[in-house]
Design a protein around this nucleic acid. Sequence first.
DNA 1: GCTAGAACGACAACCATTCTCACTCCTGAG
DNA 2: CTCAGGAGTGAGAATGGTTGTCGTTCTAGC
Lengths: 150, 150
Amino acid sequence: MARAHPAPVVTATLPLSPPPGPRQQRLLLVLREAGRELSARELHQLLEAAQEQQGLATVYRGLKLLQRAGLVRCRRLVNGESVYAPLERDQHHLTCVQCGSSEPLPICPLGGSGLGLTKVLLQGFQPLFHTFEIHGLCARCQQLQAPGHG
Amino acid sequence: MARAHPAPVVTATLPLSPPPGPRQQRLLLVLREAGRELSARELHQLLEAAQEQQGLATVYRGLKLLQRAGLVRCRRLVNGESVYAPLERDQHHLTCVQCGSSEPLPICPLGGSGLGLTKVLLQGFQPLFHTFEIHGLCARCQQLQAPGHG
DNA sequence: GCTAGAACGACAACCATTCTCACTCCTGAG
DNA sequence: CTCAGGAGTGAGAATGGTTGTCGTTCTAGC
């Protein structure tokens, strides 16, 4: 299965990248419908279940395109896995350095109103998305690590 | 080479973790003397050059201990490598999603005064360090990607 | 039908990190 | 001193997410 898609369908006003093809739009749709971040593998499996399978390499390629097009954001979990979400979902996390668990953090350092950064700071850099994460010890791991407990 | 170090030397007032042993103090010293973030492999090589070699696995173990002790921070580069720096070096970055290059960003979302977060937000979570990163396209990659150029 | 070019899928390769396990060193007891 | 127990370590294998390779398939144009 391979195609050189004839006509792009999305026409968002993006600053740089060409609009994604239909395969990438599928990826974006699945990401939007999922209530949470998805890894490439999960995305691959969900597409397979929906009988719209793409090869794993294609999923990775599509995610990279979507990222560069400013439609998808990405972060790395402690276990090395990358997880993806639509750009508009501005969600950050508390991550435990001990057990790797990750829970949502209901604040955004940029106020949720996009990137409030001056051009002076960016120096020609075109921002697409940002990641903010607080690393520390979750309540459970604090107890396990406390003296006089284990 | 193995040792069950008899007496800890560092006595910082840390909230949770026991103070690191001498091997971990070596790691921390090298990180502090280096003007930049170091990967585990670089750290391993620098120690070797200083005739204080530690096995790579030991370096990884020590970095994890230092991280949990609140003495070292860590972030992942685009290529999958983790780089480490002393906690007190509060430095964030602009990272290009295309070429992976990473340049310093002279701001901190928390104002550089440590973690300005309320306990309500943290919910029992013990913060150790934070990461903030803006992902986008560097000036070079914008030009290469612009229509009418390539 | 035929050619050129782009996208794709399957699978191999890559590489940072973690795991395993035998070994060394330290400590404490006799 | 000698011995046993335990923690820390080093070398190399194993793990696993991601990327590279390469032959195939599709579309467009003629």
